[in-house]
């Protein structure tokens, strides 16, 4: 009896507040707009029995999904989200790898402190970390002031409200997600392997490329997915740092819902976003599984 309660309470909580809402999204994405307010047509009327059920299913259609293909705003937003997520993932890897490497090769007594310094920003508000870049990147911001003062540039750089600012924002906020898995892969590495490679005539660079890089591969892949997956659906960064030209699907969904009040289309956007995300999520799971098997 106790075992039943133990399983049932979290189970039903998640069923009602996680699974059922998705079924509703799916249903609404197949419904028509009825003045953008509930009740949407069709409604499931169980009192009408079998007839009601049939009427319900015959009313569902893919109209909203067809609509998404006719307006090129949507597919452009999906493509541009994927592009922005991909570019910023690679940039995060570029910035994160040297940090992880430096941490893993630091003296032992330094490592806990360095680890804490990487994790600390993760505990501070995401919104504040994104906001902190608004003061730096704007036309009268710190970066432009410094560059003008140094005489590097004559006119302020327009970085704020462009995709560049979005890249910087994503790299900055997701950096710990990239550094931590790479660090843990590098830390486990046996350093005598490098010595062996160097003894056998490898240059330092060749030893890195032939030994260190392949051995940190699982960490790199995990880090890339941990940045790529949430970056696709990102909303805060493009809306604060991006401009009108920055198309990201999370922002489109938010605006479709709050500004246009078009719930069925917003739901259809959500369903497709989920379908796009399933592929990297499955690949990520598989990578994690392989890494676990390799260890065990």
């Amino acid at each position: 009896m106790r075992r039943f309660a133990l399983i049932a309470i979290p189970y039903f909580w998640l069923l009602i507040l996680f699974l059922v809402p998705f079924v509703i999204v799916l249903k609404i994405s197949l419904s028509d707009v009825a003045l953008a307010r509930p009740p949407y047509t069709p409604q499931l009327d169980l009192s009408a029995g079998w007839e009601g059920l049939r009427a319900f299913f015959s009313e569902l259609d893919f109209e909203n999904f067809v609509f998404l293909t006719t307006d090129d705003l949507y597919w452009k937003a999906y493509v541009s989200s994927l592009k922005i997520a991909l570019v910023s993932t690679l940039l995060t890897l570029l910035v994160g790898y040297p940090i992880a490497y430096g941490m893993a090769r630091a003296p032992n007594e330094w490592r806990p402190t360095l680890l804490m310094l990487v994790i600390l920003p993760f505990w501070t508000s995401f919104l504040i970390r994104v906001y902190s870049w608004m003061g730096i990147l704007s036309n009268e911001g710190t970066l432009n002031t410094v560059l003008l003062w140094l005489g590097v540039i004559d006119t302020p750089l327009q970085i704020m409200n462009t995709n560049t600012a979005v890249y910087i924002g994503i790299v900055y906020t997701y950096l710990p997600f990239m550094v931590l898995p790479i660090y843990s892969a590098l830390e486990k590495m046996d350093e005598s392997l490098i010595e062996a490679a160097e003894d056998l005539g490898c240059s330092k660079l060749a030893a890195f490329w032939l030994v260190t890089w392949p051995l940190s591969r699982n960490g790199i892949i995990a880090g890339c997915f941990l940045v790529f997956i949430p970056a696709i659906g990102e909303f805060v960064i493009p809306s604060l740092l991006g401009g009108s030209g920055t198309l990201m699907i999370g922002k489109v969904l938010f605006e479709e819902f709050f500004s246009n009040r078009d719930w069925p289309v917003a739901s259809a956007v959500a369903v497709i976003l989920l379908l796009i995300l399933i592929i990297p999520i499955i690949l990520f799971q598989r990578n994690e599984q392989k890494a676990r098997e390799a260890e065990g």
């Binding site: 809402p21 998705f22 999204v25 696709i232 659906g233 969904l253 938010f254 959500a270």
Partner: peptide
């Protein structure tokens, strides 16, 4: 994605 959790 948070937007989907929120919407649903």
């Amino acid at each position: 994605p948070e937007v989907i959790t929120g919407l649903s």
